[in-house]
Design a protein around this nucleic acid. Structure first.
Length: 883
RNA sequence: GGGCGAGUGGCUCAGCCGGUUAGAGCGCACGGUUCACAUCCGUGAGGUCACAGGUUCGAAUCCUGUCUCGCCCACCA
């Protein structure tokens, strides 16, 4: 497969390689794991994207993280399954299709249920395919042979089994309760599907006429109540006051007449009433307010629903029947005002619930719905996290999870929608028996009647998503996949769906499989645009990841998404960041180009004694990087791993080792050349392996050029770190520092880049090192001659003077040395060093430091002081010499 | 009303289970077209780590409080 260097373009062009490489991955079968009972698998099920539309950046982020994990684990030899699929996304998809229909001037009712659902399926086909295409373009190493969709027959059967199981355990019940109702979607919503927004509304003070008991003139003739939703007064069935409120003591038990309707309703006492709010008297509308609902239940008040499902007033609303709720509100206020029943109006800031899918103001209403009794499911789900069976990364989200789970309320699961899993409940027309059944029943088990009709509602889309980690693997059947890959390893998703999804998966996983569905919940931050705004279609700041892939490459996008952030913290993505990542991919590409031009790597590893200091240094750095990246991956610190790889590749391998390698290869020394090539290839290969999870395309593209490469990089084995070589690292650090210092003065004194300057070095005990590395120093610092001896006497004069560690360098630059400036430089440096010494001495003399600080720290401080003092001495001698 | 996160060079962010001289990328300044790369190379400037207390031999890092920004939760008629 190896291509030749001559075909390697000067810059990495992702457009030329990405799709071909993906094709090869597919053909290789590498994405499909081989089940091996001797090996522990690594499993991630994808958070199924909604088939509402195309993927956006946020999806690209989870792809980047999950693919990184999958690719890494695959290379460590674990059978790795990353299972793809999509979510039918009930209300969301129904709404987008309805919106599309609206453009044709149609509603779903014009089509009817069957045809409408067919339309949604067409939509699903289109966007499901687009999503898959996008996943491929992103390089997702998902196992397409196991692709799932929440409405697949198998998954639908899982839904029915789950429902019936809960039903039979008494954990699913049907009831009339107050729920959130979206009048536009005409469906119930769970609390989570309601977004609350601070809104400045009005508080209307309305007079409710008291029914007189005697004709005494001293009593008031009405009670004033304050309301933000006057239209709901049509359904009032009481006025409530706090039992301790002295103002109203005499009125409790009295009755008022409800304006417009004339209904006579009692004044009751209830502790839920806050005497300090409004007038201290509150209208009670059990059918349209959650608080009032509770009060109503406590006092056995009638529950009068005054609204139709579309938000218009129903026949209970008397004169307002048929009007929209807001039109009714305006009309009622006008009339109250005209009749002298409106006491006053105030501005009032309160939070108003909106449908999270369409933005319509939600109406609390009493409605008959199916609910999951959640507490019995929540308890073990809390415990599983508390006892560490499931770990949240970052940990703080566990507290958020606990807080929600401990205050959880029953979950309304029925939805008055057409797109979704039909509730597996049938009603017998003859005897009204309720039949929950996995298979469609034909006769009523109670009366044997054969006229049955199915509940028209569908299930909340999250009901099926909650089963996803195991329904995708075959549950409720006891499949080989389920046995092998479940529980899954990591659930990687955004922190915004902890309640919607993560919590439900944990509850359902424990309930239905007896096991936590995953070991770790890794939560990435949310992606924001360069201004820090949440990306959303309504804001118009969503960009198609394909555009960015086209421009910068999938590798760049992925690298940019994974680095420069911490788990759980939001990420701002700018094009500058993508550019940087693209440049990094190109840097790697060019490093590889260079390595390839050097020829071929010797087939056998060199004898350790043949390695130069620089060889040993880069191999040691490579080992350290390998160990660090592996550790960071294990700790889910992907960003940090990406950063150290960047530094290693760019700053160590490219900036230093390759430059040194060029020198070593120029030497007339075949053994040295061979060794250098071996090191170049060796380090490059490991770097490619380590970067494969971040940048799978460019690394594979380079891999293809390496000689004797048959296998794909994706199935190469993860590198194991070799030994570290502290001696080599220290020696090269000195060499680098020395070269930098010389370059620094050259730049400062504007010495022509090409010009070689002489250097005289007093190396002290670094004599051997500098002698050995002289070729490198001469070449990279452009010095010649490079005159090294333990001590220099006499000192060159005039000359620029540098102090690097314990090494003194004299640069006798004819005509450039200004004695006064040199004195200045030396004394500035002395001042700087003295300040450091003073700092250290303060530390050392602080009471307790020597006694309490770890000895290693104390020793280090002492050594530093010695070294600094030595430098100061040298500088003082220098100063004296300049005088 | 409760909770969480953030505040570090011009910008975007690391570091934060305490310990040399607080790092990176971008931007900026100066200098570079020879043999991997101008999507580049070399050199440099730039930070009272939001503020105030405290703990400690030692604090960007731990504790308390304050301010600013963002987010989440909550049945504010």
């Amino acid at each position: 497969m190896a291509e030749t260097i001559s075909t390697m373009p000067k810059a990495f062009d992702h457009r030329l390689v990405e799709q071909k490489i993906y094709e090869r991955w597919l053909q290789s079968g590498a994405f499909t794991p081989t089940i091996d009972s001797n090996k522990k698998p690594f499993t991630i099920v994808i958070p199924p994207p909604n088939v509402t539309g195309e993927l956006h950046y946020g999806h690209a982020m989870f792809v980047a993280f999950q693919d990184l994990m999958a690719r890494w684990h695959r290379m460590t030899g674990q059978p790795t399954l990353w299972l793809p699929g999509t979510d039918h996304a009930g209300i969301a998809t129904q709404n987008v299709v309805e919106a599309a229909l609206a453009k044709e001037g149609l509603t779903r009712f014009d089509l009817g249920r069957e045809k409408f659902v067919a339309r949604v399926w067409e939509w699903k086909e289109k966007y499901g395919n687009l999503i898959n295409l996008q996943l491929q373009r992103l390089g997702a190493s998902v196992d397409w042979t196991r692709e799932r969709f929440t409405l697949d027959e198998q998954l639908s059967s899982a839904v029915r089994v789950a429902f019936v199981t809960l039903f039979e355990k008494g954990l699913i019940y049907q009831g009339n309760y107050i729920v959130n109702w979206c009048p536009r979607c005409t469906t119930v919503l769970s609390d989570l599907e309601v977004d609350h927004e601070e809104t400045t509304g009005k508080l209307w003070y309305v007079r409710y006429p008291l029914i007189p008991v005697d004709q005494s003139k001293t009593e008031p003739d009405y009670v004033i109540v304050a309301t933000t939703r006057p239209e709901t007064m049509l359904g009032d069935t009481a006025v409530a006051v706090n039992p301790g409120d002295e103002r109203y003591l005499g009125l409790i038990g009295r009755r008022v007449s409800l304006p417009f309707i004339g209904r006579v309703i009692p004044i009751i006492a209830d502790n839920a009433v806050d005497p300090d709010f409004g007038t201290g008297a509150v209208k009670v509308t059990p059918a349209h307010d959650p608080n009032d609902y509770e009060i109503g239940r406590r006092h056995n008040l009638p529950e009068i629903n005054v609204m139709n499902l579309n938000g218009t007033i129903n026949e209970e609303g008397g004169p307002f029947a048929g009007m929209d709720r807001y039109a009714a509100r305006r009309t009622m206020i006008d009339q109250l005002d005209q009749n002298g029943l409106l006491e006053r109006v105030e501005d009032h800031v309160h939070s108003v619930g909106h449908c999270s899918r369409c933005g319509t103001t939600v109406e609390p209403m009493i409605s008959k719905q199916w609910f999951v009794k959640i507490e019995p499911l929540a308890r073990p789900a809390i415990e599983a996290v508390r006892n560490g069976q499931i770990r949240f990364v970052p940990e703080r989200f566990a507290r958020i999870y606990f807080n929600w789970m401990e205050n959880i309320r029953d979950w309304p699961i029925s939805r008055q929608l057409w797109w979704g899993h039909r509730i597996p409940v049938w009603y017998c027309d003859a005897c009204n028996e309720i039949i929950a059944s996995v298979e469609t029943p034909t006769t009523c088990p109670k009366c044997q009647g054969s006229t049955l009709h199915q509940d028209p509602d569908v299930l909340d889309t999250w009901f099926s998503s909650g089963l996803w980690p195991f329904s995708t693997l075959g549950w409720p059947k006891d499949t080989e996949d389920l046995r092998y890959f479940y529980p899954t390893s990591v659930m990687e998703t955004g922190y915004d769906i902890i309640f919607f999804w993560v919590a439900r998966m944990i509850m359902f996983g424990l309930e239905f499989t007896g096991k936590p569905p995953f070991d770790v919940v890794y939560l990435h931050g949310l992606l924001r645009d360069e201004k820090g705004e949440k990306m959303s279609k309504s804001k118009g700041n969503v960009r198609n990841p394909l555009d960015m892939i086209e421009k910068y490459g999938a590798d760049a996008l992925r690298y940019a998404l994974v680095t420069g952030s911490t788990p759980g913290n939001d990420v701002k993505l700018s094009e500058e960041k993508l550019e940087g990542a693209r440049n990094f991919a190109n840097k790697l590409w060019n490093a590889a180009r260079y390595v390839l031009t050097t020829g071929e790597s010797p087939s056998s590893a060199p004898n350790g004694a043949d390695l130069s200091t620089a060889d040993r240094w880069i191999l040691s750095r490579s080992s350290r990087t390998t160990a660090d990246v592996t550790r960071l991956f294990e700790e889910f610190e992907f960003s940090e791993a990406g950063r150290i790889l960047y530094e290693f590749v760019w700053n160590e391998f490219c900036d230093w080792y390759i430059e040194i390698a060029k020198i070593q290869l120029r030497l007339d020394d075949e053994a040295r050349q061979a060794t250098t090539r071996w090191v170049l290839f060796n380090v490059l290969e490991d770097a490619l392996k380590l970067l494969q999870p971040f940048m799978p395309y460019v690394t594979q593209a380079i891999w293809d050029f390496l000689p004797n490469r048959r296998d794909l990089l994706i199935v190469a084995s993860w590198p194991t770190p070799g030994p570290v070589d502290d001696a080599a690292e220290n020696e090269l650090a000195l060499v680098v520092e020395l070269i930098r210092a010389i370059r620094n003065v050259r730049a400062e004194f504007k010495v022509d880049v090409a010009r070689r300057i002489p250097a005289v070095v007093a190396a002290g005990n670094h004599q051997a090192t500098l002698d050995r590395e002289r070729t490198i120093i001469e070449s990279l610092a452009r010095v010649n001659p490079f005159d090294v001896s333990p001590e220099v006497s006499p000192r060159p004069q005039p000359a620029l003077h540098l102090l690097v560690g314990g090494v003194e360098v004299y640069l006798p630059l004819a005509g450039m040395v200004d004695l006064e400036a040199e004195r200045e430089r030396a004394s500035t440096e002395i001042t700087r060093l003295q300040a450091q010494i003073t700092g250290i001495e303060q530390r050392l003399s602080q009471p307790g430091f020597i006694a309490k600080a770890p000895p290693a720290i104390v020793d280090r401080e002492r050594e530093r002081r010695e070294s600094l003092l030595e430098q100061v001495t040298k500088l003082q001698e220098r100063l004296a010499a300049l005088a």
